[in-house]
Design a protein around this nucleic acid. Sequence first.
DNA 1: ATAATGTCTATTAAAGCAATAGGGTTTATG
DNA 2: CATAAACCCTATTGCTTTAATAGACATTAT
Lengths: 168, 168
Amino acid sequence: MKISQKGLYALQAMMMLARHYNQGAIRIRDVAYEEGLPEKFLELILLELKNARIVESARGAKGGYQLRRPPNEIHLSEIIRLIDGPLAPFGDAEQLRSLIDHDAEHRALYQVFLDVRDAAAKILEHTTLADIVSGAGSSKSSKRKKKNDQASVLPMVVHGHVNKGKDE
Amino acid sequence: MKISQKGLYALQAMMMLARHYNQGAIRIRDVAYEEGLPEKFLELILLELKNARIVESARGAKGGYQLRRPPNEIHLSEIIRLIDGPLAPFGDAEQLRSLIDHDAEHRALYQVFLDVRDAAAKILEHTTLADIVSGAGSSKSSKRKKKNDQASVLPMVVHGHVNKGKDE
DNA sequence: ATAATGTCTATTAAAGCAATAGGGTTTATG
DNA sequence: CATAAACCCTATTGCTTTAATAGACATTAT
């Protein structure tokens, strides 16, 4: 799984709409401006989000976009799966099919990949826009894991040994 | 993070070498044949693994490749980081820098990404070639989590709702 | 000597990604 | 009902990455 620039834009746009939830339709231009995104590209992204019925639009003058559901009912996993495809850490299912159809060792490798996917899914399926956009929708399910509750909002980027140039 | 075809090849090649650990140098051709990989492409991959000192080579007639360490001391994370780069689920650090430098909301999003990376890293840094290649190196650290011990080797690919076309 | 094998650099074809272009359709409003 | 403001939709472009191949070079066992 890899979050593309487009996927990041989608998340940012959705955060913006979450921030302005219940304020009526927001124009593409305003979303683009407030988040610093390329307007025409954002247009395509919002269209996809609309077709997936995550947002809704009003056409014509005074038109714009808004969330179809409260921010605490929109999970990051939805958005990422829509824009960037499956959360699995491997390419297409095709190349993996060969692994599965092979011996026990190859299936064991495949299972590790599934474990990784499930770990990612667990996080992204439990995190909503409301969890991220502080002032947003009346969090009924603001259930980020206790362990990270303070960490999630603070900088704390370089806290242990994890960020010694290995990843990021 | 996304495991490329090349990364998958690398893992397969390493599994093959783990399977034949302590059997002397193995020719590229044999690795390619046994795992069904394109020989010339594999050549480049093994070269990278050699430069990273994960495998070693013998040149000339009777030459070939072998692991430099026992299979239970080679983690999947090493291989994947080498071939496919950081485990983080986002592109380059550049686009993320902008998130960090922004407001608390954007940092919160960034933190979710870090959580995903850490979850993936936790799995891949704890899984060794020995954990995957059954007959391989005298597992000192065959520490796959109990919860999945049986699952990891069995088919069980389509077990619940997880694989209903969502991911994979 | 020579055949077998790894080393290295370059090239290419295809795919994916980010972004732009531009005309079409709908709607509020005066 | 005319017009401007917006979303809708398809196509195209340039760029980068990826997977793979080609071919000459260097080393070693026999």
